[in-house]
Computed example of a mutant assay.
Amino acid sequence: MTLRTRLTAWYAGVFLIAGIALVGLNYWFLADWVVPAAGVAAAPVGGTAVQRTVPLETMQTLEVSSLPADAVVWSPAAVKSDVMTTVLWQSAIALVVAAIIAVWLGWVVAGRVLAPLHSITSTAHRLEAERLDQRIELDGPPDELKELADTFDGMLDRLASSFDSQKRFVANASHELRTPLAVQRTLIEVALGAPDASDDIRRLGAHLLDTNERSEKLIDGLLLLARSDRGLATRELVWLDEVIDDEIESCEALAAEKKVTFAVRTRRYLVDGDPVLLAHLVGNLLRNALLYNKPGGTVSVELDRELTVTNTGPTVPAQAVPGLFEPFRRLRDRTGTAGSGLGLSIVQSVARAHQGSAKARPNGGGGLVVQVNLPETGVRQPS
């Protein structure tokens, strides 16, 4: 039962209790009423209006011929009983009608009172960590609901400021770390190029270069994640199917190394967005599908209503799938790969930046199925 229904029920219940109490009080007062005339009343048989009241002391002189032919004679007790019965039934009917009107008015008033709460709820539903620009901005008198809405807006301001500060910190820190990593790589390469470098130094240098490369990939991933989290500064029309073809071509060497084949089925698909971020989205999906695959496996790429990438890697537990979209979260059997744990996080962030979504589920024969929904524009290529 909704809050609006409960408020209406409470309002109608209180109204009925008050109405019944009022009718009962009136009936009790009417029960103490004494008929002023200590006599009898005469009225037509089919009528309700008393035509004549005759005092009791003159009853012995009252002649039947003096009354109308269709008259009946009521005693004071009968008049009182008839009045009380009429008042009771009319009050009951009026109370039922008034209760129906009260329920309708209660429903309308409860809706108007709860309208600000619906606004707060709808705003909360639209909020995400990457979209904290929604505000209620409730207009009205300074009552409790206005205070609640203002408090909610203030909380959103603080959260937005905190998230922006965090994103700026990640972007700035990642950017600052790229320079010393580049310097380290240069020094290692110079040391390895020296003619007197021993075999131990060359082995150590190769290991350091590999570690340096991993760190640079991690920094680049953090920068890309921070950029996509901030949203799109500019947009342009991008053919997503062409982006997929380009990224598949760039992954051919890795696919040959992993002995994995591609199965591609796409159609023309136009997206309004950032071509660089979209290329990273597709590239991360393809490289993840290749890295976490098995020799002789396949990577299926389908683009119809959405982009679906399926691989034939090891079995993925269903309960572990949501955690794969979190930064640095990987399955235990994936920790030996060259990935940084940011691939699906970047995919989800880029999809959200394009007002889309990303989800995944285990593949029936092993591996993972990742589905990315990106809004397609209404523009079509001329036939």
Rank of each mutant, 00 (worst) to 15 (best):
E63V: 12
V45Y: 01
T310A: 05
G47V: 04
D220K: 07
L30T: 13
L187P: 00
L368Q: 06
L270M: 07
A31V: 14
V40N: 01
T261M: 13
G47E: 07
A49M: 08
E63C: 06
Q134C: 04
V243R: 09
A173C: 01
V34A: 05
G364D: 14
L22M: 11
L30Y: 12
K146C: 08
R287V: 14
A318S: 13
L62T: 13
F262K: 13
D133S: 12
I248Q: 13
P195E: 13
V350A: 06
T2G: 09
P180R: 04
H118Y: 04
R168Y: 04
D82G: 05
V87C: 07
A160W: 02
A358G: 03
D220W: 01
K359F: 03
V113P: 00
S345D: 05
G106V: 10
V54C: 00
K167C: 07
L285N: 01
D333P: 00
E130V: 07
T377N: 03
V96F: 00
A318C: 02
G336V: 14
L187F: 06
V96G: 01
L331W: 04
Q134M: 10
P141R: 15
G273R: 04
A9I: 14
R230C: 06
Q371S: 14
A279Q: 13
R4Q: 14
G296M: 02
A21F: 02
R4H: 12
R52V: 09
G366P: 02
A206L: 15
T121L: 12
S122T: 15
L159I: 10
P317K: 15
S65E: 07
V369F: 08
A182C: 01
A78K: 14
A71C: 02
I136R: 03
V45R: 11
V14K: 07
G221K: 02
A102M: 11
E57P: 12
C251D: 08
F328L: 11
V170N: 08
A110F: 02
A18H: 00
V301D: 04
V72K: 01
L177Y: 05
L291N: 07
R227E: 12
G297S: 12
V103E: 08
E57F: 10
F169P: 01
E189Q: 09
R268A: 05
D272N: 08
G47T: 04
L204W: 14
Q355M: 11
D153G: 02
R112Q: 06
T2A: 12
L281K: 04
A160L: 11
F328H: 10
L145P: 00
S250E: 11
A171M: 08
W89C: 03
R126V: 07
N373Y: 04
R230E: 11
D274R: 03
Q90T: 15
S345C: 09
L22F: 13
E242P: 00
F163S: 08
L156R: 04
